[in-house]
Amino acid sequence: MKLRWKALLGIGLMSLLTLGLAGCSNGNQRSEGVKGNKEIVFATTGDERMSSYHSPKTHKLIGYEVEIDKQIAKGLHRKAVFKEMAVPEELTAIKTGKADMAGEFALSSVYKKNYLFSKTVKYTYGALLVRAGDQSGIHSWKDIKGKRSAGEAGTTYQKWAQYMGAKLVNYDNASGILNDIANGKADFVPNDNYGLHMNVKYSPVKGLAIAKGLYYRTNLMGPGEGYLINKKDTQLQKEVNQQLTKLKKNGTLKRIFIKYYGVDLSKPSNAHIKYFHVPAKYKGLQ
């Protein structure tokens, strides 16, 4: 998964490379992309608050990821085109050339073989969404053993939960997960700390909270989150990284993150975060 399971939608949800090209190029040519050099196609889910979601008022696609996408496209003098799809389809779209790139992926070794990485865009860490009353009985790391972890099969978060001894409750999408935590069908959701806080803040599902003091990172998360790009499109990778450097230097990334999260995620956090190394044998499947 994105080495993350998509954040759940605030309205009650919160949610590989063939040799086909997504814009073949050589080192001296501008990347073409799947729609030619007038457009750049971003794969996105459209159901992640605050990353990529539809405004309840205007129904337009908004979010920090969407705004950064548009800034990148603007800097490349191209039009940003969005194709909404689930996480597995995002990966396939980049690989088969149906999209040029996709954001908010962990820049992890899991993807290194099949995709090019952008520079780190977002620095974050994991947390646990639990029932507010008793914190789902999870007050220390050892309490996770035997608890039911809700998430998307095979994600970095479910792999970590499996490593920690949790029972996996895997979902095809984010729908219903918050309700299942609240009603006791599952015990916790391991995911991005800031995304989970948005779930608690905006979801109509009541009785949810973030487990206190249980923040973590794993080897599967890489240095942070950024864009995955077609393995052959080195020119696009170069251009995107140039734009990200500019956006960070001029404060645009900071402004966008503060707009959606109230905190600057373009730099590492100083929070106390425990590190775990998850062996490759854990697949997040059960």
Rank of each mutant, 00 (worst) to 15 (best):
D180K: 06
S109M: 07
E39L: 11
A106N: 02
I72A: 08
A161M: 00
Q235L: 15
G151E: 04
Y163M: 12
I40T: 10
Y125N: 05
K95S: 15
G63N: 07
D100A: 13
M1G: 07
Y157R: 04
H139Q: 09
A102D: 03
P190R: 00
E104S: 09
T44F: 00
G46H: 03
L228Q: 13
A106I: 04
G137Q: 10
A80S: 13
A106Q: 07
N37A: 10
N241Y: 11
S136I: 06
L129H: 02
G36C: 08
S175Y: 07
N37K: 15
S149Q: 09
L8K: 06
Y64K: 07
W5N: 07
G126Q: 01
Y202P: 04
I177K: 15
K112Q: 05
K248S: 06
A99N: 11
Y123R: 02
Y282W: 07
I62R: 05
I94T: 15
G165D: 14
I210S: 14
P190K: 01
K281G: 05
A280G: 13
Y275T: 12
L247P: 01
T44S: 00
K159A: 04
G251C: 08
S52R: 06
L168G: 06
Y115K: 13
A211Y: 05
A271W: 05
A161F: 01
H54T: 04
T96C: 06
V110F: 13
Y115V: 13
K274R: 12
E225F: 10
G151C: 03
L214K: 01
V41S: 10
L214T: 02
A211G: 06
H54R: 15
D134I: 04
K60T: 10
Y202E: 11
A43S: 12
A150N: 02
L107P: 04
K212V: 01
Y275I: 07
K267G: 11
Y194K: 09
G133P: 01
T44I: 00
P268W: 03
R148W: 11
L220W: 03
G10A: 15
Q158C: 04
K83L: 11
V200A: 11
G126T: 00
D134G: 07
G12R: 15
A127Y: 05
I11F: 08
K274V: 03
F42E: 04
Q135W: 07
R78M: 13
G23T: 13
T155K: 02
D100H: 14
M85V: 12
H77L: 11
K79C: 09
Q158W: 04
S51R: 00
L285I: 14
K185R: 15
H197C: 13
R4Y: 05
L265W: 00
L196S: 09
S25D: 10
A132I: 03
Y171C: 02
M1A: 08
L265I: 01
K185F: 14
E48V: 08
G184W: 00
A182L: 04
S51Y: 00
T252S: 09
Y123H: 14
I258S: 05
K185C: 06
L116H: 12
H277S: 14
G75M: 10
D192G: 05
V240H: 13
F257P: 01
